[in-house]
Write a protein that binds this DNA or RNA. Sequence first.
DNA 1: ATAAAAAATACAACCGATTGTATTTTTTAC
DNA 2: GTAAAAAATACAATCGGTTGTATTTTTTAT
Lengths: 344, 344
Amino acid sequence: MSEEKEITIYDIAKHLNISPTTVSRGLKDHPTINIKTRKKIAEAARQLGYRSNTFASSLRSKRTQTLGVIVPRLNSSFMSSVLAGMENAASREGYNLIIAQSLEQADKEMENVLTMFNKRVDGLLVSLAHSSENVRHFDMFFNKKIPVIFFDRVAPHPDSTSIIIDNFTAAYQVTRHLIMQGHKRIMHLGGNMLLNVYSERLRGYKQALQDHKLHFDEKLVITGNLTEECGTDTAKQLLKLKPKDRPEAVFSANDTAAVYCMIALKNAGINIPEDIAFAGFNNDPISRVIEPNLTTVNYPGYNMGQAAVTSLANHLNGDTNITNTNTIVLRSELIIRASSGKRK
Amino acid sequence: MSEEKEITIYDIAKHLNISPTTVSRGLKDHPTINIKTRKKIAEAARQLGYRSNTFASSLRSKRTQTLGVIVPRLNSSFMSSVLAGMENAASREGYNLIIAQSLEQADKEMENVLTMFNKRVDGLLVSLAHSSENVRHFDMFFNKKIPVIFFDRVAPHPDSTSIIIDNFTAAYQVTRHLIMQGHKRIMHLGGNMLLNVYSERLRGYKQALQDHKLHFDEKLVITGNLTEECGTDTAKQLLKLKPKDRPEAVFSANDTAAVYCMIALKNAGINIPEDIAFAGFNNDPISRVIEPNLTTVNYPGYNMGQAAVTSLANHLNGDTNITNTNTIVLRSELIIRASSGKRK
DNA sequence: ATAAAAAATACAACCGATTGTATTTTTTAC
DNA sequence: GTAAAAAATACAATCGGTTGTATTTTTTAT
């Protein structure tokens, strides 16, 4: 049963004493091949353990049944959900995923794009790196009309579709919720404002303040990289202030920073939410472990991954044409937990 | 700038008036090609908008520069670290990753194996599904001498290498630590004992008890799927017992179950570690958020991913021969935190 | 200056399937 | 029975790199 050598159509041809052409056509049920011959070929193929060589055939055809995925980092709770959803949909649609990470670096992202291009992926799914200031490195895809879908961290481009949540509205709702809970001086801890996700959240925050006649104070907006350290540092800043100068609530653009900020404040004896309320973004697992549990926005990563791949696959199958679709907005939801409770 | 026709090495050759062979070798920095020629080729390639045709290349070289990865689930903290490490190493070694998840189902795993086989991956990296009772479905790889590396959830096989941590010793250390803290009746919350990782941890637990002259009580071993729910359920069981019958400490085979068990117990007014101490496994982010912080074992996922890919790549490059390597054991470490403190 | 060694480049076969065209075989029509 | 039409099969070029070996060019040694 051990097969040392790869079986080719030539082996089948020799075995049946017919030509390779007939075998090739027979294997794909070409109508000019006698039906009895086709049966014999199929039988021989199975018997000999033949498997088609996709490279040889792809040399001509164009499709690889492979999708490229480029993400900033693989190891975040959100991204791993996205990938799980993508893999699930891809598997269902008969595609494979080639995955690469940009590590937030624009040059690595460019490199990844090139690799995907050379690998002849049928389509590309991208969440942009921090340092990607434009999307010109995707032009090779656009020029060749290979579909590109941006998700989460997107950039507007006429030839591509974006899949996002409504960050503006989500942030608006978070902020409004905090306001409704009686908090007036609300701080926003945001990310890199060059990225749509963070700038939109800031915009939602501002709009909510304005709509509720609250003064927008520039000093209450801090931007950082939203890591653990960033959260801890923010806590340090807060602790330097006199208690009465401290904001009454903090709306962080992600859960990680919120949680580590909370931990540091709690260690300093500050009560949450009585002294300072908190809200985050993403609905990471840690948001349900921190005490008090963190109010946050559920970010449908799994669905986003599925949606992205499904759209792409439909486009490639010709079922729908994605070039007419500019943006797909997924539903997110505010999850209210104890951290955003009322003031004492 | 729009390129209708694909540029090939023949076009570059003609353009520079040299042979296609030289172009081919020049493009991959073959040392026998003059460095000035290489530069000229690279320049011409960029100018003409050349992209390598991987099909043609794979057809001839029989190598796809692609590694297959099959994991139970993509969206866990540990697995996403592993993948990040794998991607990092793969990128460095010039390989791409095709990733699929088995969702813990043996039949899905078999399907994935077949896909990877037909995609002609150069090697396979696998963490086994819960329900995989044997590894016969990998025989097509073994027969063809395509290297397979198992990591984390492994099965012994003469033709493959396993990359693991020393689960036995790690569990031994956790248990010993709990004993040293003064805990005597220690419960073990374990996973599917058909999997090496969980059976080894149980073994380490037992051995530590024995070495410290503690009686092993079968009733103190519970097995489950180690999910949040499993943790919560375990807490319910514990709460049903009379306080004096409760174990003094719980050693859970992962952090998720430990943390959710702790949360449920805390909600019921039980103090940790004064009433019951806890220790987990994996060093998930949640272990540093739960209060008290969870004593656990740091599981070097990122390193494991890197090590797996690096070994595979070295083997494929012929640098080392992996068939002589049975097992690679990575260092793990006990991380002592407050949850395993002394009894009141 | 010349032979030997090393470096650089070229030749040509090859990987395995596809496809337009040619050839052979079978069927149909008269 | 024979020519024309239809069906079935075969030939040979092709896709675009790769690679062992041969050839040419350059460098080194004597």
